[in-house]
């Protein structure tokens, strides 16, 4: 599987990852090389094999819906890059 520069650019956009022009080529070569090696997966016969998403077979883990203490807003906001009136300040979503 070869990944073109354009495909790398598209994946980066999906992941909201800015990539330098100069890095596109490098990532395209490296990711293609990795994916080529992963063709081995297609050689494994998985007919009638169910997928595993998790090593522990847990179904829903439930708990009582009880009120418990939470973090103080000031503690959470202490790491905020930009804060205003006890809220996270964000850029305009609508332009």
């Amino acid at each position: 599987m070869k990944l073109s520069r354009e495909e790398v650019q598209h994946i980066a956009l999906l992941a909201r990852l800015g990539v330098d022009e100069s890095d596109l080529e490098k990532f395209s070569v490296q990711l293609s090389n990795i994916l080529e090696n992963f063709d081995i997966l297609q050689q494994v016969d998985t007919t009638d094999v169910p997928p595993t998403s998790h090593p522990v077979a847990l179904s829903n883990v439930l708990r009582e819906d009880e009120v418990t203490p939470s973090f103080a807003p000031a503690d959470i906001l202490a790491n905020a890059p930009q804060e205003e009136e006890g809220c996270f300040r964000v850029r305009a979503v609508l332009e």
Binding site: L41, Q42, V44, T46, P50, P51, T52, S53
Partner: peptide, 13 residues
Amino acid sequence: YYLKAQKVRTLIT
């Protein structure tokens, strides 16, 4: 890729 890998995961386990 993803689904196939999950099936291989079952085999390995």
